[in-house]
Simulated scan of single mutants.
Amino acid sequence: MKKILVIAPSWIGDAVMSQPLISKIKEAVISCEIDILASSWVQPIYRKIPQVSRVLLNPYLHGQLKLKSRLQFAKSIKNNHYDECYILPNSFKSALIPFFAKIPIRIGYIGECRYPLLTHCKRLNKANTPKLVDQYAHLLKYKSESTPGKLDNPRLAVSKKSKTDIQNQFIKLQRKKIACLCPGAEFGPAKMWPYEKYSELAKQLGSKGYEVFVIGSKNDALIGEKIYFLSNKIAKNLCGKTSLDDAIALLSISDLVVSNDSGLMHVAAALNRPLVAIYGSSSPAFTPPLTDNAMIARLKLPCSPCFQRTCPLEHMECLESLSVDHIYGLVCRQEVNSGT
Rank of each mutant, 00 (worst) to 15 (best):
L244H: 10
P9H: 15
Q135F: 07
E335A: 14
L117E: 12
A127C: 03
T129P: 00
N79C: 11
T129F: 15
I248D: 06
V214R: 05
S262E: 03
V29L: 15
I77L: 14
P194S: 05
S283R: 10
K126L: 12
I103T: 04
I327E: 03
I227E: 10
E225Q: 15
L322S: 09
A185N: 08
R54T: 09
E335D: 13
S304G: 00
N232C: 08
I34N: 02
F307C: 05
N168C: 08
G13S: 06
W41L: 12
S53C: 01
C32F: 07
M295A: 15
G216D: 08
I178N: 01
R273H: 08
C332M: 10
R70I: 02
L139M: 12
A297F: 00
A157I: 11
A74H: 04
S254L: 14
K241G: 01
N58I: 11
E225D: 14
N219V: 00
Q43Y: 03
L61N: 12
N90W: 00
S69K: 13
C239F: 04
I215M: 13
L222A: 13
A127Y: 11
L230S: 09
S40E: 10
R54Q: 11
N337M: 04
I223H: 09
A277V: 14
Y228R: 15
H120Y: 10
T164L: 14
M17T: 04
D292F: 11
V55R: 02
I97P: 04
L238T: 03
A297V: 10
V133T: 15
L88V: 11
P59G: 12
L67E: 10
G149L: 03
E320S: 09
P44N: 06
R333N: 13
S94V: 05
S207T: 01
P44Y: 08
L96D: 08
W11M: 04
L21M: 06
K66F: 05
R309H: 13
V52M: 12
P289C: 04
S283Q: 08
N237T: 06
N337S: 06
V52I: 06
E84G: 05
L37A: 06
N90F: 07
A285S: 13
Q334W: 03
E200V: 03
S254F: 03
S144N: 12
S323Y: 06
I296T: 01
S91R: 02
L271W: 11
N128T: 12
G329M: 02
S231G: 08
L156G: 01
A249I: 08
P288E: 09
D261K: 11
L57C: 03
K68C: 02
R54I: 01
P189S: 02
N232D: 13
R333W: 05
A101W: 08
K177Y: 10
A297N: 15
Y60D: 12
D255P: 02
S162G: 00
K177W: 02
C332H: 11
Y115D: 06
F187P: 02
K122Y: 13
K24N: 12
S159E: 02
F92Y: 13
I103V: 10
A38W: 11
I223W: 07
S243I: 05
E112S: 05
D261P: 09
Q334G: 07
C306L: 02
N90R: 14
Q135K: 13
L5G: 10
A74E: 04
K233I: 10
G329W: 00
D246F: 02
K161M: 04
Q64G: 00
S282Y: 14
S323W: 09
L244G: 08
L132G: 07
I278R: 03
D220G: 10
